[in-house]
Write a protein that binds this DNA or RNA. Structure first.
Lengths: 342, 342
DNA sequence: TTGTATGCGTTATCAC
DNA sequence: GTGATAACGCATACAA
């Protein structure tokens, strides 16, 4: 590919002048600027970002490591991040951790080697050596969706506690008492928080906390299915199964369907996360919706601020309950939101 | 961040030796290798991929530009590409064209500037100047899923003609005669091919081709919805609506639901693409499934071959019909595949 | 306004 | 087996 030298030679100027044209320096005659530009077009010249980055020590790229690219929650998040980053002049490099710490580390490693200007991380499980390196090496880092305790890293995430409380109250009002929760891994902040919120909502509503009704999956469909099977095989199965994310809801549906059971007559269902197709289930799924767009937007802003050495503070946004009909709701045709207590 | 110089100095060797350790050169004593390695660990040294790439003229990355990151078909594809690429020692940079030619060009441009070793492109619409540049600049390029005529670029894609013929026969056998098709943009190879296959399948089955029953959407949900509305408002609405991709099926469902219509009693539905949640619709969606994993895998192999200057030929894989119950199928409890004529 | 020269971090070529 | 050193493509301080 043509380099700056080729352009310079062909335009009869020095490489410095070409560089000035590239960077829109004011100190260059319109006349020469035009000539250089013409040569660039003629040669189909594209500046070498690799060389430029080496020189300027900035790549104008940020890394985004998501938990699972097959999870619509994360792809929506990626989309929001990408849009906001582009608007801020950054390109986004997406890494798919596939919920595996070692694969997360693989991406932290390569993105660090690629010298991204900053890193957005949805941490998978525990603190890994590479993540510590990143923090230590003072690469701008922001946690997204999930957070890791014990590290001085700002985070942008949603808090579902209020929405979970709303959900439990809603279920209670519908007459349900035996509510099971398929939570996420205890190693993930999202897993822990949702479990804690569920348990405290239960007690708050005067419902007993039955240990056999709370089990941690891994945020993937298969675990949702196997745990649902176990729950349904209980001597006293739950009336409602609440899943900690949308993929485990898919797994739960698989199992329910395989057994020829009906929702909500045989077992009611609700899910954390809201995704487009939940609307089209029969019955439509009652769910907890996260402000995905905002999360992505704010995370990018926080990271860009950190890159620019401006102060950043963590942000927590509320999730909200979206009532549909998978829990035995009646008399309602559409859906409605409940943000406050009923 | 620590550089090769810091390591060299601290280990009491030259940068050349450190470089040799980095590249596992045999000509270095185990003793010094160990010492250098120790210093690297101590400093948390990560080689600068930017500098290395500048020197070696290889980034060990490939670019992947997909049509729409919110489309599960493309995320599955991205996942497959990522897995295969990593196995081959490459990192993948994902760009989301969002079905917009100018955004596709944005990514072609930045990925070219980043000097990716090769590019996997699911072309959005027509040939753009930048794509021509890429071809001209002889950057290894492979088309994925979609192809562009008039360019000497290998492609990896699925052919749905046989599956579409199977579908039309299947519908015919079920007694349907008025079948509408919401196709993709005529500018896309996938849009054109599926339309052509549909039309020829119709005639082959002795069914009339009614122009008002064939309209092109843009592969996004909104267009699926609006075209469905138009079809249902026709004096003689179709008995079956077949959508050209899964997002437009989502849009069609939105409209059908909004009208309080039932599938398949009021209108039958089938979709190109098969996605996990199709199983959980009521009734489950009859669909055409593409060999996504294989497409991703083969595309990476083709691109790696091109990068290595090995000869490459285009590959076309067959899609297949998956019969479920959204078209009025009866007496079947599960799903079944029809690869041949009935 | 433009050109010359230096260096960014690495690899590779040549000596020793 | 190891060490100087040039070069990759670009941006920039300094000179002209």
């Amino acid at each position: 590919m043509a380099s700056i030298k080729d352009v310079a030679q062909r335009a009869g100027v020095s490489v410095a002048t070409v560089s000035r044209v590239l960077n829109a320096s004011p100190s260059v005659t319109e006349r020469t600027r035009a000539r250089v530009q013409a040569v660039m077009d003629e040669l189909g010249y594209r500046p070498n970002a690799v060389a430029r980055s080496l020189r300027t020590d900035a790549t104008n790229t940020i890394g985004l490591i998501i938990g699972d690219i097959l999870n619509p929650f994360f792809t929506e998040l990626a989309r929001a991040v990408d849009d906001e980053a582009r608007a801020a002049g950054y390109s986004v490099l997406i890494g798919n951790a596939d919920e595996r710490p070692e694969q997360q580390d693989h991406y932290v490693g390569t993105l660090l080697e690629q010298r991204v200007d900053g890193l957005l991380l949805c941490p998978t499980a525990e603190i890994t050596p590479l993540v510590e390196d990143a923090v230590r090496g003072s690469r701008p880092l922001v946690f997204l969706d999930r957070t890791l305790a014990g590290l001085d890293v700002p985070s942008v995430r949603a808090d579902g506690s209020a929405a979970i409380r709303d959900l439990v109250r809603h279920l209670r009002a519908l007459g349900h008492r035996r509510i099971a929760f398929i939570s996420g891994p205890a190693l993930l902040s999202t897993g822990r928080e949702r479990t804690a919120a569920f348990v405290s909502a239960l007690t708050e509503c005067g419902l007993p906390v039955r240990p056999e009704y709370v089990e941690a999956g891994d945020f993937q469909a298969a675990s949702g299915r196997s745990i649902t099977a176990r729950l349904l095989d209980l001597p006293e199965p739950p009336e409602v199964i609440f899943t900690g994310d949308n993929l485990m809801a898919l797994g739960a549906l698989d199992e329910i369907r395989a057994r020829g059971l009906r929702v909500p007559a045989d077992v009611a269902l609700a899910s954390y996360d809201d995704v487009p197709w939940f609307t089209h289930l029969d019955p439509p799924m009652t769910a907890i919706s996260q402000p995905v767009q905002e999360l992505g937007r704010l995370a990018v802003r926080a990271l860009v601020d950190r890159i620019g050495d401006r102060p950043v503070r963590s942000v927590v946004l509320p999730a909200r309950l979206v009532v549909r009909r998978s829990c035995g709701e009646t008399g309602e045709t559409g859906e409605s939101e409940r943000s406050g207590p009923e």
